[in-house]
């Protein structure tokens, strides 16, 4: 029984990483090999597409072509980097102090505000889309990167995560600091932030993966393709372009996978915090 369960876990775990293997092998195949295995899909020939688990003639040609010949991907890439970085920096500036204020205050407003924040966190984009559009439009920010950045800077999600880690700060430490004459801002910077650093990083890793993959906002708020982020671009799937499509897919998922590998512990922690945080509400 025990071993059947484990076998199943290993099997499902393998299924979870199949697309990564798929992208990597596809990128390493030459266009001729891709065309031969995928012709039924790409060129609508008879029969079914197949796959080689190990490329017959591995080559780096697709990757090199992507890096050298496709400046338009760089534009998409830098748009994504710029937007995601701006959101995360903005969240750090606004969300961390907000979480601190709410976690430390003993007054009634903090509880009410925090409940409202949780409610906002649970609203899907489908509900907030029109309202965000109306504000952004009145600020004439539609069709600029600010339309992606600003609403997400004030996302309440990071406040929710960081709040939980501020609750764990031992009060004795804060008392001691006060006695030593530290001001509120000093306490926040020198005691609060370092202790909650894990929670802050957790919020950032979860945030990066989420915003690197933003689709709804660019589709609605951006009209010009030059402003697009990587996440809404789909390469053409044709016989000539197959290798390029694979290389692009790798290019698109690589930053997310790198952040995932570096920050997986924080990601796991961030998810666990969401669970325990919600349980009490």
């Amino acid at each position: 029984m025990k071993y059947i369960g484990r076998l199943l876990v290993y099997f499902l775990g393998f299924i979870c990483i199949i697309p990564v293997l798929f992208v990597v092998t596809g990128t390493l195949m030459g266009n001729t090999e891709l065309a031969s295995v995928l012709a039924p899909v790409l060129a609508e020939e008879g029969g079914y597409a197949g796959w080689h688990l190990i490329p017959s003639w591995p080559t780096l040609k697709n990757l090199i072509a992507l890096l050298l010949d496709t400046p338009e991907y760089y534009v998409l890439f830098w748009n994504s980097i710029k937007v995601v970085a701006a959101i995360l920096v903005g969240q750090f500036i606004f969300a961390v102090p907000a979480a601190w204020g709410m976690a430390q205050s003993r007054r009634k407003w903090s509880g009410i505000a925090f409940s409202v924040y949780i409610f906002c966190m649970l609203l899907p984009f489908q509900v907030t889309m029109l309202s965000q559009y109306l504000v952004l439009n009145s600020l004439s920010m539609i069709n600029t990167h600010l339309s992606l950045i600003l609403p997400l800077v004030f996302s309440t999600f990071p406040v929710f995560i960081v709040y939980q880690s501020f609750l764990d700060i031992p009060p004795t430490v804060l008392e001691a600091a006060k006695i030593d004459g530290a001001g509120q801002f000093q306490i926040f910077c020198h005691i609060g932030v370092p202790i909650a650093l894990q929670g802050i990083l957790a919020a950032m890793v979860v945030g990066f993966l989420e915003y690197w993959n933003m689709v709804e906002q660019p589709v609605v708020f951006l009209q010009e393709k030059r402003l697009w982020t990587l996440s809404v671009y789909i390469p053409e799937l044709t016989v000539e372009n197959a290798g390029n499509a694979f290389a692009f897919s790798l290019f698109s998922l690589l930053p997310a996978v790198v952040i995932f590998i570096v920050g997986k512990e924080f990601l796991a922690q961030g998810i666990a915090i969401q669970g325990t945080g919600l349980e009490d509400k």
Binding site: G13, F14, V20, V23, N213, L230, A256, I259
Partner: peptide
């Protein structure tokens, strides 16, 4: 457990191509 988190990290456009 980390293997099961990989799909969460993959961008939807790469998934759509696959």
């Amino acid at each position: 457990q980390f293997l099961f988190l990989v799909p969460l990290a993959l961008p939807s456009n790469s998934i759509a191509v696959m």
